[in-house]
Write a protein that binds this DNA or RNA. Structure first.
Length: 219
DNA sequence: ACCCAGGGTCATA
DNA sequence: TATGACCATGGG
């Protein structure tokens, strides 16, 4: 079992997921903050409120009092914290030149810049780097740790950066084309999350089946 | 009535 | 550095 063979198994079973579900790159970035420790169905309601209020840019978010922003994103939970985090992110984003960041920044510079924002940790930053900026990073989340440590491919208690490089180097050693690599990282994370929702959360004996031959998603 | 969700920060020891 | 508390809504 390898990182790439697990990907092929999932892709074969579920097909392409076309993440991230958003209309613009900026919407991806906002969604990445809103979905922290939160079900996506609740994030959708918060984003719908923002759109209805016409608050769809960094400038408009910053022009609004934090309390009003909190009221709009309330369905996403932790709304006081997330209102502050969204504002932190937006002021950083504008200070960096806004939309032109999307093309002009080196991958590592981009990542460290995002991580400098209070409220943007490694996973949220990589959601943005991959799904808004289309750069090749592999996102490590709780599902990824669970599944791949059960398969014996990683150690569950390794640090985020170590695991990220482990996935990236293993997969990029076999996939040489840049666009193909980005596409695989894009689909892979989406498939891992889907598999967790579709199988793991429903199956009390998941730890014994997880993506092995008896797993429904491996058929 | 619990449990968790597409996390991160901060205070404490 | 390593746990724990905290944020807080909505669906199962």
């Amino acid at each position: 079992m390898t990182f790439l063979s697990v990907y092929k198994t999932l892709f074969k079973h579920y097909g392409p997921q076309h993440w991230w579900p958003a209309e613009t790159a900026f919407e991806v970035m906002i969604g990445a903050v809103l979905t922290q420790n939160t079900a996506w169905s609740n994030v959708e309601k918060a984003i719908a409120n923002l759109k209805q209020a016409g608050v769809v840019s960094a400038a408009k978010i910053l022009a609004m009092p934090a309390a009003d922003l909190g009221a709009l994103i309330r369905p996403a939970g932790c709304f006081n914290v997330k209102a502050r985090r969204l504002r932190n992110f937006c002021s950083w984003f504008l200070a960096q030149g806004g939309e032109k960041l999307l093309n002009n920044v080196d991958d590592d510079v981009l990542r460290s810049g995002l991580l400098s924002v209070n409220g943007v940790g490694p996973e949220t930053a990589d959601d943005m780097v991959l799904y808004a900026f289309n750069r090749p990073v592999f996102i490590i989340d709780a599902y990824t740790r669970r599944v791949f440590s059960r398969l014996g491919l990683i150690a569950a208690d390794e640090g985020y950066e170590h695991l990220r490089h482990q996935f990236e180097s293993q997969i990029s050693s076999e996939i040489k084309q840049h666009n193909e690599l980005v596409n695989i990282f894009n689909e892979y994370h989406a498939l891992i999350v889907l598999h967790a929702k579709d199988v793991c959360r429903k199956n009390p004996r998941c730890s014994e089946c997880c993506l092995r031959s008896q797993c429904p998603a491996a058929k």
